[in-house]
Design a protein around this nucleic acid. Sequence first.
DNA 1: CTGAAAGCGCTTACAG
DNA 2: CTGAAAGCGCTTACAG
Lengths: 358, 358
Amino acid sequence: MKQSMNTKHMTRKDIAEMAGVSVSVVSRALNNSGYVAAEKKAKILRLAEEHNYIPHPVAMSLQQRRTGQILYYCKDLHNSFNIDLYYGMVEAARKRGYMAMINANVTFDHIRGAMVDGILLQNEFFVRRYLETYGKNYFLPVVGASFGNLETLSQSVPIVEWDIEGSMELLIRYLRKRGHRRIAYAGPYGYQNPNCRTVVWKQLMEPLLGERLRDYYLDTSASDSEGIMIADYDSGATEWLNEETYNNKAREAIRILLERGLEATAIVAFNDEFAVGLIQALEQNGKHVPDDISIVSFDGSYRSMTSVPRLVSVGPDFRLYGEKMVDTLVRRIEGQRLHYFSRVKGVIHEGDSVRRLR
Amino acid sequence: MKQSMNTKHMTRKDIAEMAGVSVSVVSRALNNSGYVAAEKKAKILRLAEEHNYIPHPVAMSLQQRRTGQILYYCKDLHNSFNIDLYYGMVEAARKRGYMAMINANVTFDHIRGAMVDGILLQNEFFVRRYLETYGKNYFLPVVGASFGNLETLSQSVPIVEWDIEGSMELLIRYLRKRGHRRIAYAGPYGYQNPNCRTVVWKQLMEPLLGERLRDYYLDTSASDSEGIMIADYDSGATEWLNEETYNNKAREAIRILLERGLEATAIVAFNDEFAVGLIQALEQNGKHVPDDISIVSFDGSYRSMTSVPRLVSVGPDFRLYGEKMVDTLVRRIEGQRLHYFSRVKGVIHEGDSVRRLR
DNA sequence: CTGAAAGCGCTTACAG
DNA sequence: CTGAAAGCGCTTACAG
């Protein structure tokens, strides 16, 4: 073992010397490109094999101006949505000859040193931050994921958006088909917050709930709330809502629900983590899902499948979503035509968290 | 925006020409090494700044024979234990001038192309597989995590082990201090399986349970069981137990518990995921944790903190564990002395899943 | 079919 | 203090 440690890495030059040819020939043989006399080729391949020659990826990259690696910059690895998306990316990247890796380093600074051909950004938040820092003067192909919060993002970063609006419609329709009419919404942001879920829920439920609309909006933004997303964004402190926050807010939502004595038959939850929190809080108050109340949520992540009961959740097809992101990035890297904005629909991931009322 | 896209990447040569000096001088100025006339240095730095010059990481790596990147090879990203460990690694790596990334690609093949200085392996399983494939003839510094299943691993890969044996002792002692004596164990492997948890639990509980020992071992290995770990290892099919499996097995464990009419006051769970499954299964059977029965588990992961109730769980100090792994790898990379085997103790992560009996 | 040569972008003794 | 030169490991026209 020891000797293998100290063995200097073989190079093509070494092989060339052993085979009595030039480096060019070795390269051609190994890369299977250009002419090489059959017997020499065989000999070279044999020698390489015997001596465990491994090409030096860094040298190849320098010469080819291509690392073959892409990076998914994602901080919140405890949220399984992000992981599911990553798995989708890995597969799509592999098919296109790239290796997809995750980086969760704290600052963007590290990214300058990253030996990658492009970067996939976790959400609009990081796209914006990227544009304000490295994006300004450092050209590296970048593609962002987005979840319906498209403010006025610069056009310079291609975006692949999961259609939150359509997804909310799917959830409401799903519930209505099963007889639900009094459908509450629970999420981390306030009633006036212009985020997509809030806006669309209000729009769709207004006709059903009328002036009770506001009551059915379980606003948990009271304490710290109202967009840590934004507060944080300026302070640079915490990054994004985490599960603990979701849990607390979910508990708060249930408190409000019970306090108001709402006769909601179903709740739409901000995301799977939030939904899990709701279920737990309900359980603690002696209410069972879906017998006493139904729950649906956004994400369709692994989390929704492993929750008890399994969640009815709307989410992107992760394989497709990952594929679109990677495809867009690779096109950008390889200088092909691409869409600066594309969209992935949501699909219902079936579960057992909804009761049929009729 | 468009022009920035097509702007060719600046090189030191470009800066040199603009500044009217040689590339060497530019390099010295930028790297802040060696002599450079003060004014020239200033000019060079200004030019670099103005033209958004960014060093080419690949070229630097080739020359320095160092990428500054390390890879955490980990497939099971849905298990928060692995994520917690990664976060620990990121921090430790940063301190030592490395960037830690995650790779979850399906095959090891990709690893040859990875532009990294070393690799951290998720567990003994991958260490073994690594040794049998690339490890055989490809020298790249590698360090493995291990959870008490040290079979006869070759000495060539340094191992940082989480002390499972001591951790089991901590759990049992924790429970005993609170008056528990009838402590069951629930995990995925069979009663005869020589894994560390099983062995140590039997050893510690034998004096307390006597001939009822076997009853208190909730063996869920019946169906597919008895080490997918091993079956899989040969087939190369599925990789490792996943959460869904844990959930099913947890349900099975509770079924056995109830069927046997055990008067267990506490259960030690294989890991946090398993424990969460147990809680849910108990809840479905009208039993509450910790009022009716207490649960403790292994991992001490993020999952244990966000479960309801929060789990009492024994796990490594992730910062320390990540640090030891990274430190060992970096030493190996940099040719310093290192321990081929080191150990991290478990610590109790407090929670609300244990009831005090006295 | 083969090999010397130039080059990818950077570094670092070394002679001036 | 400066710059030409050699080199990191590989590729690829191009002249033979």
